[in-house]
Amino acid sequence: MPDGWSGFSYLVINLARFIRPDEVTFSGVNSTPPMLACLLAKRAYDFDFVYLNVAGGVQPTPSTIPISSSDPVLAEGSTAIFANEDFYDLCTRGGMDLCFLGAAQVDGLGRTNVSVIGDWHHPNVRLPGGGGGAVMLPTARRAVTWRTEHSTRTMVETLDFVTAAGGLAGVVTPIAVFVKRDGRLALQSWHPEASLDEVRQRTGFDFVATAATPTPPPSVNESAALQTLDPEGQFERDANIAPLVDRCSLPRRR
């Protein structure tokens, strides 16, 4: 990659790589990276999938890419409105193949905290809350979360609160992709400009890295699709992801 692979681009493209042909895939509120991943997959991959979103969209073709991932423009071009109760019920009855759900903290078991930092009753930081998490994480066939910050305070050994538990299939950060294996998160791949050591150093829980490799670089189609979604780089700037490697606090990379 002559120009490097930014943390933002890595995050969006690797979220998109969880999307599979013909499956029902959902992106929700407060979820800009998965929204972009779903729209990217529609442009970059030569297979179809059913894209649903929290704006009621069913296979939408939005004319603009909104700042808010619940913006009603995300239902533009839909032939139906599939509203909130519809997609939740679809999920709990087993009809949601892939669901993207947010998290503030993730533990090694793939459980998430989106509720609080500190004690729930005496919070240091009151976080937004899990939204769909507690219901969708255990009932979606696969759920995938993301973090724009990969650190020992986001990838933790012990959650401050278990907002949701269950079917987490993967986590994407700006430097790594984890997948669930034998009940725990295992490293699948790391950013080719980072290293396994760096991932270990910035992760609070132990994980298996057997068979993990550097992440395959973005394809021409993936890069082109992201370029059409974010031509001015506004989403990338807004995501405000720290530079890939914090060279001050890390041992020399290999």
């Binding site: 507690a134 219901v135 278990v162 269950g166």
Partner: peptide, 26 residues
């Protein structure tokens, strides 16, 4: 969770004292 709140609203809408909800385990 959004759907547990909705389950509570459904109980009121259905005229029953409580309402089952999918998920929430763990």
């Amino acid at each position: 969770a959004c759907m547990t709140l909705t389950a509570g609203l459904r109980a009121a809408a259905f005229g029953v004292p409580f309402q089952p909800v999918g998920g929430v385990h763990g």
